[in-house]
Protein backbone atom coordinates (compact mmCIF):
# COMPACT_ATOMS: atom_id res chain seq x y z
CA UNK A 1 0.00 0.00 0.00
CA UNK A 2 1.49 3.31 -1.01
CA UNK A 3 -0.09 4.89 2.07
CA UNK A 4 1.96 2.74 4.38
CA UNK A 5 5.26 4.22 3.21
CA UNK A 6 6.81 6.63 5.63
CA UNK A 7 7.28 9.28 2.94
CA UNK A 8 3.70 10.51 2.74
CA UNK A 9 3.45 13.20 0.05
CA UNK A 10 1.68 15.54 2.48
CA UNK A 11 4.91 15.79 4.46
CA UNK A 12 6.33 18.13 1.81
CA UNK A 13 3.63 20.73 2.48
CA UNK A 14 4.19 23.39 5.16
CA UNK A 15 3.69 22.17 8.73
CA UNK A 16 1.37 24.99 9.78
CA UNK A 17 -2.13 23.80 8.83
CA UNK A 18 -3.37 27.16 7.59
CA UNK A 19 -0.34 27.44 5.32
CA UNK A 20 -0.71 23.83 4.25
CA UNK A 21 -4.25 24.50 3.03
CA UNK A 22 -3.19 27.72 1.37
CA UNK A 23 -0.29 26.00 -0.40
CA UNK A 24 -2.51 23.24 -1.75
CA UNK A 25 -5.22 25.68 -2.80
CA UNK A 26 -2.65 27.81 -4.64
CA UNK A 27 -1.09 24.87 -6.47
CA UNK A 28 -4.49 23.51 -7.52
CA UNK A 29 -5.78 26.91 -8.59
CA UNK A 30 -2.74 27.62 -10.78
CA UNK A 31 -3.29 24.33 -12.56
CA UNK A 32 -6.95 25.07 -13.11
CA UNK A 33 -8.03 22.09 -10.98
CA UNK A 34 -10.09 24.17 -8.59
CA UNK A 35 -12.01 27.39 -9.03
CA UNK A 36 -11.66 29.70 -6.01
CA UNK A 37 -15.17 31.03 -6.69
CA UNK A 38 -16.48 27.48 -6.36
CA UNK A 39 -14.78 27.19 -2.97
CA UNK A 40 -16.49 30.41 -1.87
CA UNK A 41 -19.80 29.01 -3.05
CA UNK A 42 -19.32 25.74 -1.11
CA UNK A 43 -18.42 27.66 2.04
CA UNK A 44 -21.38 30.02 1.65
CA UNK A 45 -23.71 27.05 1.22
CA UNK A 46 -22.76 25.42 4.52
CA UNK A 47 -22.20 28.65 6.42
CA UNK A 48 -25.42 30.38 5.44
CA UNK A 49 -27.87 28.17 3.59
CA UNK A 50 -27.80 24.62 4.92
CA UNK A 51 -27.83 24.05 8.66
CA UNK A 52 -29.80 22.74 11.65
CA UNK A 53 -32.69 25.08 10.86
CA UNK A 54 -33.63 22.54 8.18
CA UNK A 55 -33.82 19.66 10.63
CA UNK A 56 -35.70 21.80 13.14
CA UNK A 57 -38.41 22.50 10.58
CA UNK A 58 -38.80 18.77 9.98
CA UNK A 59 -39.09 18.06 13.71
CA UNK A 60 -41.61 20.87 14.26
CA UNK A 61 -43.75 19.57 11.43
CA UNK A 62 -43.55 16.01 12.80
CA UNK A 63 -44.72 17.28 16.19
CA UNK A 64 -47.62 19.12 14.56
CA UNK A 65 -48.77 16.67 11.93
CA UNK A 66 -49.27 12.99 12.91
CA UNK A 67 -49.57 11.81 9.29
CA UNK A 68 -46.33 13.57 8.37
CA UNK A 69 -44.61 12.05 11.39
CA UNK A 70 -45.82 8.56 10.55
CA UNK A 71 -44.58 8.89 6.96
CA UNK A 72 -41.26 10.34 8.13
CA UNK A 73 -40.61 7.49 10.56
CA UNK A 74 -41.70 4.84 8.05
CA UNK A 75 -39.62 6.05 5.08
CA UNK A 76 -37.89 9.39 5.49
CA UNK A 77 -36.28 9.82 2.06
CA UNK A 78 -39.35 10.66 -0.05
CA UNK A 79 -40.77 12.87 2.71
CA UNK A 80 -37.54 14.85 3.05
CA UNK A 81 -37.00 15.02 -0.72
CA UNK A 82 -40.40 16.66 -1.08
CA UNK A 83 -39.25 19.36 1.34
CA UNK A 84 -36.05 19.83 -0.68
CA UNK A 85 -33.83 18.33 2.02
CA UNK A 86 -31.74 16.01 -0.05
CA UNK A 87 -28.13 16.03 -1.18
CA UNK A 88 -24.60 15.21 -0.25
CA UNK A 89 -24.36 13.22 2.99
CA UNK A 90 -28.12 12.94 3.25
CA UNK A 91 -28.93 10.47 0.50
CA UNK A 92 -30.27 7.75 2.79
CA UNK A 93 -32.03 9.14 5.84
CA UNK A 94 -33.59 7.34 8.77
CA UNK A 95 -35.42 9.30 11.49
CA UNK A 96 -35.51 7.71 14.95
CA UNK A 97 -37.99 8.83 17.59
CA UNK A 98 -37.17 9.46 21.23
CA UNK A 99 -39.76 8.10 23.64
CA UNK A 100 -39.93 7.91 27.43
CA UNK A 101 -38.59 4.35 27.32
CA UNK A 102 -35.83 4.93 24.74
CA UNK A 103 -33.46 7.78 23.99
CA UNK A 104 -31.57 7.78 20.68
CA UNK A 105 -28.12 9.23 20.10
CA UNK A 106 -26.01 9.34 16.92
CA UNK A 107 -22.26 9.01 16.47
CA UNK A 108 -19.78 7.99 13.81
CA UNK A 109 -16.95 6.16 15.56
CA UNK A 110 -14.95 5.56 12.34
CA UNK A 111 -15.02 9.10 10.93
CA UNK A 112 -17.63 11.87 11.20
CA UNK A 113 -20.70 10.84 9.17
CA UNK A 114 -23.53 13.32 9.72
CA UNK A 115 -26.75 14.34 7.91
CA UNK A 116 -25.51 17.46 6.13
CA UNK A 117 -28.72 18.50 4.31
CA UNK A 118 -30.59 18.56 7.63
CA UNK A 119 -27.94 19.68 10.12
CA UNK A 120 -25.14 21.24 8.05
CA UNK A 121 -21.48 20.68 8.90
CA UNK A 122 -20.94 18.78 12.16
CA UNK A 123 -19.74 20.72 15.21
CA UNK A 124 -16.20 20.22 16.49
CA UNK A 125 -17.23 18.03 19.41
CA UNK A 126 -19.05 15.58 17.11
CA UNK A 127 -15.77 15.04 15.25
CA UNK A 128 -13.66 14.84 18.43
CA UNK A 129 -11.87 11.68 19.51
CA UNK A 130 -13.61 11.90 22.91
CA UNK A 131 -17.12 11.78 21.43
CA UNK A 132 -16.27 9.15 18.82
CA UNK A 133 -14.57 6.93 21.39
CA UNK A 134 -17.00 7.28 24.28
CA UNK A 135 -20.52 7.70 22.87
CA UNK A 136 -20.92 3.98 22.12
CA UNK A 137 -19.53 2.73 25.44
CA UNK A 138 -20.78 5.27 27.98
CA UNK A 139 -23.53 7.40 26.43
CA UNK A 140 -24.85 8.55 29.82
CA UNK A 141 -21.48 9.89 30.87
CA UNK A 142 -21.24 11.67 27.52
CA UNK A 143 -24.74 13.10 28.03
CA UNK A 144 -23.58 14.34 31.43
CA UNK A 145 -20.89 16.34 29.63
CA UNK A 146 -23.81 18.10 27.90
CA UNK A 147 -25.69 18.58 31.18
CA UNK A 148 -28.32 15.98 30.27
CA UNK A 149 -29.54 13.34 32.74
CA UNK A 150 -31.98 10.67 31.61
CA UNK A 151 -34.49 8.96 33.89
CA UNK A 152 -33.26 5.56 35.08
CA UNK A 153 -36.02 3.75 33.19
CA UNK A 154 -34.93 5.21 29.85
CA UNK A 155 -32.70 2.94 27.76
CA UNK A 156 -30.24 4.47 25.31
CA UNK A 157 -29.87 3.31 21.73
CA UNK A 158 -26.69 4.66 20.13
CA UNK A 159 -26.56 4.64 16.34
CA UNK A 160 -23.02 4.26 14.97
CA UNK A 161 -23.19 5.57 11.37
CA UNK A 162 -20.98 2.95 9.75
CA UNK A 163 -22.58 3.10 6.27
CA UNK A 164 -24.04 5.85 4.06
CA UNK A 165 -27.30 5.85 6.02
CA UNK A 166 -27.65 9.04 8.06
CA UNK A 167 -29.71 9.27 11.23
CA UNK A 168 -31.74 12.15 12.62
CA UNK A 169 -33.19 12.02 16.13
CA UNK A 170 -36.77 13.17 16.55
CA UNK A 171 -36.70 14.58 20.08
CA UNK A 172 -39.70 14.38 22.41
CA UNK A 173 -42.01 17.36 22.18
CA UNK A 174 -41.60 19.28 25.41
CA UNK A 175 -44.52 19.72 27.79
CA UNK A 176 -45.91 23.23 27.71
CA UNK A 177 -45.58 23.49 23.92
CA UNK A 178 -49.25 22.84 23.23
CA UNK A 179 -50.78 25.34 20.84
CA UNK A 180 -47.48 26.59 19.45
CA UNK A 181 -47.25 26.91 15.69
CA UNK A 182 -44.50 25.25 13.65
CA UNK A 183 -42.20 28.28 13.70
CA UNK A 184 -42.41 28.52 17.49
CA UNK A 185 -41.89 24.78 17.81
CA UNK A 186 -38.85 24.85 15.51
CA UNK A 187 -37.25 27.38 17.84
CA UNK A 188 -37.30 24.71 20.59
CA UNK A 189 -35.30 22.26 18.47
CA UNK A 190 -31.54 22.62 18.85
CA UNK A 191 -28.98 20.94 16.63
CA UNK A 192 -27.81 18.81 19.55
CA UNK A 193 -31.35 17.59 20.26
CA UNK A 194 -31.41 16.12 16.75
CA UNK A 195 -28.09 14.32 17.37
CA UNK A 196 -29.38 13.10 20.73
CA UNK A 197 -26.98 14.93 23.05
CA UNK A 198 -29.67 17.37 24.16
CA UNK A 199 -33.40 17.41 24.72
CA UNK A 200 -35.76 19.82 23.03
CA UNK A 201 -35.97 23.11 24.92
CA UNK A 202 -39.05 23.75 27.02
CA UNK A 203 -40.94 26.89 26.01
CA UNK A 204 -40.24 29.80 28.32
CA UNK A 205 -42.75 29.88 31.14
CA UNK A 206 -43.40 26.13 30.91
CA UNK A 207 -41.73 25.50 34.25
CA UNK A 208 -38.76 23.41 35.22
CA UNK A 209 -38.81 20.44 32.86
CA UNK A 210 -36.63 17.39 32.89
CA UNK A 211 -35.90 14.61 30.44
CA UNK A 212 -38.53 12.37 31.99
CA UNK A 213 -41.43 14.64 31.22
CA UNK A 214 -44.21 13.11 29.27
CA UNK A 215 -44.07 13.30 25.53
CA UNK A 216 -47.19 15.32 24.88
CA UNK A 217 -47.05 14.24 21.25
CA UNK A 218 -48.03 10.76 22.42
CA UNK A 219 -51.26 12.05 23.94
CA UNK A 220 -52.64 13.74 20.89
Amino acid sequence: MPHDHSDHPHAVLPSDPALRVKALETILTRKGLIDPAALDEIIDTYQNKIGPQNGARVVARAWSDPAFKAALLADADPVLAELGYYGRQGEHMVVVENRPERHNMVVCTLCSCYPWPLLGIPPGWYKSDAYRARAVREPRKVLADFGVTLPSETAVRVWDSTAEVRYLVLPMRPAGSEGLDEDALAALVSRDSMIGTALATAPSGAGDLKGGDLNVGDLT
Binding site: K22, L24, E25, L28, I34, D35, A38, L39, I42, I43
Partner: peptide, 10 residues
Protein backbone atom coordinates in the same frame (compact mmCIF):
# COMPACT_ATOMS: atom_id res chain seq x y z
CA UNK B 1 -13.68 26.27 5.66
CA UNK B 2 -11.05 26.34 2.90
CA UNK B 3 -9.91 22.79 3.77
CA UNK B 4 -13.45 21.49 3.48
CA UNK B 5 -14.10 23.36 0.24
CA UNK B 6 -10.80 22.34 -1.41
CA UNK B 7 -11.50 18.71 -0.49
CA UNK B 8 -15.03 18.76 -1.90
CA UNK B 9 -13.90 20.57 -5.06
CA UNK B 10 -11.13 18.02 -5.66
Amino acid sequence: ARALAVTLAC
